[in-house]
Design a protein around this nucleic acid. Structure first.
Lengths: 209, 209
DNA sequence: CTGTTGAGTGAACATACGTACACTGAAAGT
DNA sequence: ACTTTCAGTGTACGTATGTTCACTCAACAG
């Protein structure tokens, strides 16, 4: 059993990852504001003071996790955006991609869902800001869709907000339906129906009546 | 300065209230899972061990707060329900009542919004259950509205879920827009527009196409 | 080969935590 | 008048917390 020689930066990056993972895992059964630096250190297998080599505080750790989580979310919407913007199956595909990512990035979604409402103020703001960015991107995507020519920029923003809100709620309920495939299936169907209802409303909408 | 004689049950109830208020206030700037029994006791002005005369644990306190908060929410929807079910101004009135109550019961709404995602499991479940009850009530209300005769029970439930989700999100963003009346005004307008969009979708909807 | 850097160590601190226990004293019941 | 009840007290405990400081020792730069 020969130990591979590891560079200093590699070693540091490895413990940084371990810290992030530990925080993600620990905050699963409570929340970032309630976990202690020492709990994280113990879980990682380092001495408490070594934590400071990587982060100034638990809140700073939280901000790093927000960055990480939203980076993976961005790959998700890039996946949704790819392909033709045919209105026909856009609903099914979008919901499908979302559900897949909730499973693949379970810890990240759980973290965002929780800290969005209960995290330290800085973390909350960071998450709110990222979600707002999603809304804006969705608005420009919607603007490219046929049938939205008569829409005001404001109405596009409002519609995007509604859709993002519904999708966030869908992600949250799927997370809390873990281990009950029948419930999840129903939630997926609900999300699709809701998106269709909203789109029907959108298609029959006229701005500034 | 003569002290009024106070009965024992009155005194106990008064302390209980003080504990509930203290917990509400303390969890404002963090979360229930992160506040300690001793913090609550200090804020109330009692010794830590006296806490146990009223609640078994912080979680039990949380459940009491959930009950209290939803009791006040119920008076709200009773207010919405009152009056003629004219579809014309139902949107404006509903949003108006919601916003008023968010201001009047700010602490309760904050508490629910936060603990819904980050509270102890028992508290989370209690909140989820209460919100589900709202959805069902809304569904029966919607069923009474003209134009929903052709709707399936399932679609009514799905639509109610969408509306409740949107209203919860509205309440949350109004809470985080505290002290910025211009932002709040925009949020209120957004909520109204969203409800109208959803209703337009609903009116043009036909179940099981 | 030599000196510097820096991730991780280990001891120590003041403070906070939940909870057990024996207690007090005034209101309520008899 | 007496006894009972019980909200609130005070002490004490073992344990966990964040942060300080001086340290080690392997990877790195010169």
């Amino acid at each position: 059993m020969v130990a591979e020689p590891i560079s200093r930066v590699q070693r540091k990056e490895r413990t940084r990852r371990a810290i992030l993972d530990a925080a993600l895992e620990l905050s699963d059964e409570s929340t970032l504001a309630a976990i202690s630096l020492r709990q994280v250190a113990k879980q990682v297998g380092i001495v408490p003071t070594a934590f400071y080599r990587h982060f100034d505080s638990i809140e700073a750790l939280g901000l790093a996790l927000v960055d990480e989580a939203f980076a993976s979310l961005r790959t998700m919407i890039r996946e949704i955006r790819r392909g033709d913007p045919a209105l026909a199956d856009i609903v099914d595909r979008s919901v499908g991609v979302l559900v897949d990512h909730v499973h693949e990035q379970r810890a990240h979604f759980l973290f965002i869902a929780r800290e969005r409402a209960a995290g330290p103020p800085g973390v909350r703001d960071a998450i709110r800001h990222q979600i707002e960015l999603f809304e804006r991107e969705l608005a420009t995507d919607l603007a490219r869709l046929p049938g939205t020519d008569s829409w005001s920029a404001e109405d596009l923003r409002v519609l995007s907000n509604l859709i993002v809100t519904a999708m966030v709620a869908t992600a949250e309920s799927i997370l809390s339906a873990a281990g009950r495939p029948d419930v999840e299936k129903q939630l997926v169907e609900q999300a699709r129906t809701q998106l269709r209802m909203v789109l029907v409303g959108a298609l029959n909408w006229q701005s500034k009546p």
